[in-house]
Computed example of a mutant assay.
Amino acid sequence: MTTKITEQDETRASLYWWFASLFSQELTAEQLKQYRASPLGQGRALLNALAEQKEFNDAANAVITALDNLVKLPHPELELAADFSQLLLTDLKTGAPPYASLYLDQKGLLFQQPHDDMQALLQDQGLRITPDFNEPADHLAIQLDYLGNLILQTSTQDPQAQHQFIQRHLLNWLPQWVTRSRQVRRNGFYPALAQLLLQFIEQDSQQPQPVAAHI
């Protein structure tokens, strides 16, 4: 049976892919321009749209404030790259690396059951991690990318698979990761973005369609 893909499906999938892209690699100077208030870039327009929804107002505005402070600096892309590195490319002692295994394994080790579970899901769908993104399968960006694909495969007509994935593979560790990200003091862009992601996922899991309806 052919799955009917609605506009809301496409919007939700695109939002998860957007979050995935932001947590997979640093923004370049050219990409950062899309988040400036003037002239209004696509990234900024998306954040503004999220800020207009009461569920995401505080978190989205925190991201916007961090960006506005960032672009005042002489080399904002270098500052943001340093933030990315300190938060996402270090260990739990100094940062908040985005791997489910670290937060779900009792010893805080990589390549544990969450990694194996994600590998199995990817293989079942015939998906592979691109060679240029050499990360464990339970990296947040990979999980979000998978969820975007899952949305288009199952559609909002049958959201149960999406709901189960969110509960079993994201919401079981993301709150811990967001809390940890707040403890890493830098510009504040990525911790605010992490909080926005968490709020979006929590709301989307409860009401898949309305979240994307006005974005």
Rank of each mutant, 00 (worst) to 15 (best):
Q153C: 10
D68Q: 15
R186Y: 02
V211H: 00
V71G: 01
R186C: 05
N69W: 01
L121I: 12
L87E: 05
M1R: 01
L47M: 05
H75P: 05
D58V: 08
K54W: 00
L147H: 14
L174A: 02
W18I: 02
W18M: 02
L15R: 01
T6K: 03
L15P: 02
Q125P: 00
L193T: 01
T65Q: 12
D105C: 10
T179S: 04
A20V: 03
E10V: 03
L87H: 13
N172K: 08
L109E: 11
Y99G: 02
K93Q: 14
T156N: 11
Y99F: 11
I129N: 02
E7L: 07
D58I: 04
E10I: 13
A213T: 13
W173P: 03
S14M: 10
Q162G: 02
L193R: 00
H139G: 09
Q157S: 08
F133L: 14
Q119M: 08
T94E: 15
K33F: 04
A37F: 11
Y190W: 12
T11Q: 01
Q123L: 13
L22G: 00
D117E: 15
Q119P: 04
Q209I: 12
T28A: 10
Q206L: 14
P191S: 08
Q183H: 14
R44D: 10
P39Q: 09
D145M: 14
L198E: 06
L193E: 01
S24I: 03
Q199F: 05
L152W: 07
Q42L: 15
L78N: 09
P39M: 07
K93W: 05
P131F: 03
H214A: 15
L144T: 08
L89M: 12
A137E: 15
A96N: 12
L196W: 03
A100S: 10
H169D: 08
Q157A: 06
L140Y: 13
F189D: 05
N57W: 07
A100F: 09
D117R: 07
Q153V: 15
Q209D: 10
E202R: 09
Q164N: 13
Q176Y: 11
L47T: 01
A60D: 04
N57E: 12
L70K: 13
T90H: 13
A137G: 04
T11E: 02
R12P: 00
H115C: 14
Q123A: 12
F23N: 01
V211G: 01
A66V: 06
E10S: 07
Q195R: 09
K4H: 11
F111A: 05
F111V: 04
A51P: 01
M1Q: 00
F189I: 09
M118R: 06
D145F: 11
F165R: 00
E202K: 06
D124A: 06
H163V: 15
K93A: 06
P39V: 08
L87C: 14
I201Q: 00
D132F: 13
T130M: 10
L67Y: 05
R168Y: 05
E30C: 03
Q112Y: 13
Q119D: 11
L102I: 11
Q143G: 07
